[in-house]
Design a protein around this nucleic acid. Structure first.
Lengths: 215, 215
DNA sequence: GGTGCGATGTATCGCCCCGATACATCGCAC
DNA sequence: GTGCGATGTATCGGGGCGATACATCGCACC
């Protein structure tokens, strides 16, 4: 999941670790707390070992760098490779079970501007299914276990159930928008937005779209 | 955090691993997915090594067990020790930074029926503070970065912001209820509910129910 | 009567991720 | 000129997870 996020950001522009962490924090701020360096640096090394990113020497436009008087440990700027771009596309499209949990869904959603519509729909519906299951579980507990659980625990379940219902409604709206072609499509994007058909208002696309539904 | 939950459940009654996992799932279903066995069993061993729980031999009322014809590997029932109860009380009352993140707060809240009012208020307010900080962060991003982020990413932030605002409101109500003595206090509890003052009835309690609201 | 299958049950392994910690430089306010 | 907060890279121990393995039990179905 982190791979996807890092590859996605590096596709927009080369960055060093610290910067990457900040960008990650604003892009995924709604999903999770800022990523730890204890996670980031090993991950960068792993991505580099896999050949998906490379170190791009610091010296940019300025040339004429300050000579390393002390044992200077400059920043390490990473950029994505061709293989990395392929990997990113692969990760974007593929959807395992982890694609639908809180973290996985959030990261995928954050890169929806670079995802094709069919995949967007597949992910949105997979997520909805998962949240619905969770919701049913909570409803069951609230219906059956009212005697066994104390008032605080029940209140916690109620709050959780409310959040589930809210998210399902949110997903429904997003799905409806995708189907009707009214998907949000704006803002900057490293690669041009993938759009397999222009917003079709009405006519042929009316009933069922091409989405493959849950396996 | 897991320690607290396990100790808390074992204080209600002795259990074996499988059962513990199920109880954990219903008690904390609103907070997190079911705990993995790859987490549970090592944790049980750790708690046992610390002297907070012990194995209680299977043989209950039935006596006269089936003799182990094969190399039988019966279930292992765990029960809490006196030290374990102390540890539980200690964990219940103490509040570090991890007490206020999603998981930590959820577990603490689930055991609020066995927490004294002062601690409940402290935790509720700590959580509120944390969610408010998160909310401000999201507001900032939405206010400042509208140009830099694509429509999907922004939608994600909006949804996250909405969840934060909702949780703050929920916490406000809970806090108000605690302060006014209308805290929920019902259902089973292994140890008698800690209550440093009886629910002051009458006058102020009039309007709403004893439960922290349900919209 | 047997056969298969899902629930019950315990356990380990590799890997990911986090918080704590350490260390170095830079800009700038006091 | 000195301290301090932001910038910046890095490691380490340990908790938690999914995958996997293996064994028993009750029961439906043939």
């Amino acid at each position: 999941m982190l791979d996807l996020a890092i590859l996605g950001l590096l596709q927009e522009s080369p960055m060093h670790g610290y910067e990457l962490r900040k960008e990650l924090a604003t892009k995924l701020g709604a999903i999770r707390a800022a990523i730890s360096y204890g996670t980031l640096y090993p991950t960068l090394r792993r991505l580099q070992a896999a050949g998906w990113i490379t170190e791009a020497g610091e010296a940019a436009a300025g040339a004429e760098e300050v000579p390393p008087l002390t044992t200077r440990r400059g920043r390490v700027v990473y950029k994505i490779t061709a293989e990395g771009k392929e990997r990113f596309a692969e990760l974007l499209a593929q959807a395992g079970p982890e694609t639908y949990d809180d973290a996985g869904f959030g990261v995928h959603f954050a890169f929806f501007a670079r995802t094709d519509r069919a995949t967007r729909l597949r992910i949105l519906e997979g997520r909805r299914r998962k949240v619905e299951e969770r919701r049913e579980g909570l409803r069951d507990v609230l219906a059956r276990a009212t005697e066994r659980l104390d008032a605080y625990t029940l209140e916690l379940q109620r709050h959780g159930l409310d959040a589930c219902e809210r998210e399902v409604r949110w997903l429904e709206e997003l799905i409806a928008n995708e189907r009707s072609g009214r998907a949000p499509e704006a803002g900057p994007s490293a690669s041009p937005p993938v759009e397999d058909s222009p917003p079709p208002p009405g006519s042929t696309t009316g009933s069922t779209t091409n989405l493959p539904e849950r396996p």
